[in-house]
């Protein structure tokens, strides 16, 4: 049986929005897929509460997001390392947590990464644009969650059937991101154009690049050494994948994000691998990055390994939740919303 839970938003981050894994098949109509900058954390948060990976959830940047539900709800917090409390008591991230009615869930981001994700068992009541809850600020679809607003969730969660404890202790095999104080390593595949800039491959491999505060959801702008191609023939605007590394005319490197549009015709030297995109989505101003050139086999192998971990997690969570009487909405096979 599904009931509607109401959650009071008592505090927000610098920017707190509804989010999901983004739009599918809209780029050919000029709308970027958008969606959670860190797709891995968003997918894991949803799996941990028994939702399908692409279900709507909440993304928050900086500050302290806090909510108070009017009934018991099952939630999970992932993303950047944070101090998470329920009614003032510390609880773990990257695991399912019960927030009892009238108690406050508070997420205080630690600042290592840029974003945290909050998933709630059930279906969030959200507006959608072209089938997705993901914001597209440029097109006037903000999806911003304001302090004092109320979030509604249709949920079938009514506590656990086994009631020895209010909080059930889960030990799931959760594929967590590794956050570190040291520079993060981003795997990149070289482009065909890279050979046209002699010395660039070596320069990128041995340098450290720093995310600047001119970065946004369109792209990360990095300070660090670059070389420019000798011939600056005009490149006609063309599409670019998420994670493309561009060298603009200025001495900086741009890594394109999920809201990129056609490139202005700058040379592209490489592409972050699919599995590296999650950490790029967590890289905020001041973060130091290193790039490691890899080949396609390694990139696809890594993507397959992560997909295997996510499927394993879905399987284990599903088994545990069935035993505890918690509803799940996982989908299987090719239908499952894959992290793009």
């Amino acid at each position: 049986m599904t009931d509607t839970a109401h959650l009071d938003v008592t505090d927000t981050g610098w920017l707190t929005t509804f989010q999901d894994l983004g739009r599918t098949d809209t780029e050919r109509r000029g709308v970027p897929s958008g969606g959670a900058a860190d797709q891995h954390s968003a997918a894991v948060a949803n799996i941990l509460v028994g939702n399908r990976r692409g279900a709507p959830l909440i993304e928050s940047m900086g500050g302290e997001l806090a909510i108070v539900p009017d009934v018991d709800v099952l939630v999970a917090v992932t993303g950047t390392p944070s101090r998470v409390t329920v009614g003032g008591a510390h609880v773990d991230s990257w695991t399912p947590v019960v927030v009892p009615a009238g108690h406050e869930l508070r997420i205080s981001e630690g600042g290592l990464g840029a974003r945290s994700y909050l998933a709630i068992n059930g279906l969030l009541a959200v507006e959608r644009f072209l089938g997705s809850a993901a914001p597209d600020a440029r097109m006037g679809f903000g999806q911003v969650i304001a302090r004092g607003s109320e979030i509604r969730v249709d949920t079938g969660f009514h506590g656990f059937d086994r009631t020895f404890f209010d909080q059930s202790l889960f030990r799931f095999p959760v594929p967590r991101l590794a956050f570190d104080e040291k520079p993060w390593t981003i795997d990149v595949l070289p482009s065909d154009q890279l050979v046209g800039i002699p010395g660039m491959r070596e320069l990128v491999a041995e340098s450290i690049y720093t995310v600047t505060d001119r970065s946004n959801h369109v792209g990360l702008r990095l300070n660090g050494p670059v070389l420019h191609p000798d011939d600056r023939t005009e490149i006609v605007s063309h599409g670019v994948p998420i994670g493309a590394l561009e060298v603009p005319h200025a001495d900086e490197l741009i890594v394109l994000g999920r809201y990129r549009s056609l490139t202005a015709g700058y040379p592209i030297i490489g592409f972050a691998t699919r599995t590296s995109l999650a950490m790029l989505g967590q890289a905020g101003p001041g973060r130091e990055l290193r790039f490691r050139w890899v080949d396609r086999d390694r990139a696809v192998h890594a993507a397959r390994a992560v997909e295997g971990e996510l499927q394993k997690l879905e399987s284990v969570v599903s088994d545990a939740f069935v035993a505890l009487g918690v509803p799940t909405t996982f989908s299987r096979g090719l239908d499952c919303a894959r992290i793009i």
């Binding site: 780029e27 050919r28 006609v236 063309h238 599409g239 793009i340």
Partner: peptide, 21 residues
């Protein structure tokens, strides 16, 4: 999975876990 149109080009995006370039 999707297609991005340029003036003289087409970026064809695919899922590398179920197909290959």
């Amino acid at each position: 999975t999707d297609v991005v149109s340029g003036l003289e080009s087409l970026l064809v995006e695919f899922d590398p876990l179920i197909t290959a370039a």
